[in-house]
């Protein structure tokens, strides 16, 4: 497990660096320029470019930027005229707040629903939960956000709640399905048979014995879920014009603001990498056996 963790950490770092470099180079090669707003004369444009070092080749600029990255100097945003690091941290915090709240809500709804969906005695409950989850799974966060925005504008619900709920509902459906499949899968474990033979009540078998066994497969997808949530948050931020990492990325890309766009991309990669790593650590804590290869 330690080796797996080290590999995960390495992969997360590689992801962040690749995202940074990839977006930097792609945006630099894209047509258009951060300074060219149609107001400047070509002479002042050239002067400004050489002052900012924008007339150098892309690769040498990238090398300088990566060198400064080591001391956490991410440069200055040309569009906002603010240090990139402060801007990105602030916007990332907004998105991570709603994303984390949504993830928590999704787990709180999805896990009990999944256990019930697999273990409930009544077929009505089981099929009902399965049907609801498939319906929720089919409502993309973007669609939920549009509908909720209408309701919220009438009822005066804050946009934070709209964002969290529209992110959490599809995610809860994903968690429910994984959890109920994992519960189905662990039913044949010998230790559960032994517990049943000892006369342990059904509820205790489900929650004390079977559920912890099923957790690793649910935790395994937290990284993917974090990616889904970020994608959903991007769509919602674009649609409802709520400020956050997604909207910042979009604006930076459109303004060809190289440093800002690359930093945003790296921040998104960092979130996914950290989520996966946290899930791995939780897995290690819940199931110490996984530390032994």
């Amino acid at each position: 497990m330690r080796r797996v963790l080290a590999a995960r950490l390495g992969f997360a770092l590689a992801l962040v660096v690749c995202a940074f470099i990839g977006v930097y180079v792609l945006t630099a090669l894209a047509p258009g320029d951060a300074l060219d707003d149609g107001l400047r004369t070509s002479a002042s444009l050239a002067a400004e470019r050489s002052r900012l070092g924008l007339d150098q080749p892309v690769l040498s600029r990238l090398a300088t930027r990566l060198g400064r990255l080591a001391v956490l100097d991410l440069g200055t945003s040309l569009r906002y005229n603010q240090p990139v690091l402060a801007l990105v941290t602030q916007r990332t915090a907004t998105t991570v707040q709603s994303g984390a709240a949504a993830l928590l809500l999704a787990l709180v709804i999805g896990i009990p629903a999944g256990v019930l969906g697999s273990r409930a005695r009544s077929p009505v409950v089981r099929h009902g939960i399965s049907a609801i989850s498939i319906l929720l799974l089919s409502l993309p966060a973007l669609v939920v956000a549009l509908v909720l925005a209408v309701v919220a504008s009438g009822a005066g619900v804050p946009s934070f709640a709209v964002m969290v709920i529209s992110l959490a509902l599809p995610a809860a459906a994903v968690v429910e399905r994984l959890q109920s499949r994992a519960m189905d899968a662990v039913q044949r474990e010998l230790c559960l048979d032994a517990a049943r033979a000892r006369g342990v009540p059904r509820g205790a078998i489900t929650w004390r014995h079977a559920w912890p066994l099923s957790l690793p497969s649910v935790l395994g997808v937290v990284g993917i879920l974090a990616g889904h949530l970020l994608s959903g948050a991007l769509a919602i931020e674009l649609v409802t014009a709520r400020s956050g990492l997604g909207l910042l990325t979009f604006e930076a890309l459109m303004a060809r603001d190289l440093d800002l766009a690359a930093a945003c991309a790296a921040a998104a990669a960092l979130i996914v990498g950290l989520a996966t790593l946290t899930a791995d650590l939780l897995h290690l804590w819940i199931d110490p056996r996984s530390a032994v290869p």
């Binding site: 792609l26 945006t27 894209a30 990284g223 990616g227 889904h228 970020l230 990669a269």
Partner: peptide
């Protein structure tokens, strides 16, 4: 590993 919509957005932009 990268959020899918970010990939699409960056490539398109």
């Amino acid at each position: 590993a990268w959020p899918a919509l970010y990939v699409v957005l960056v490539l398109r932009a």
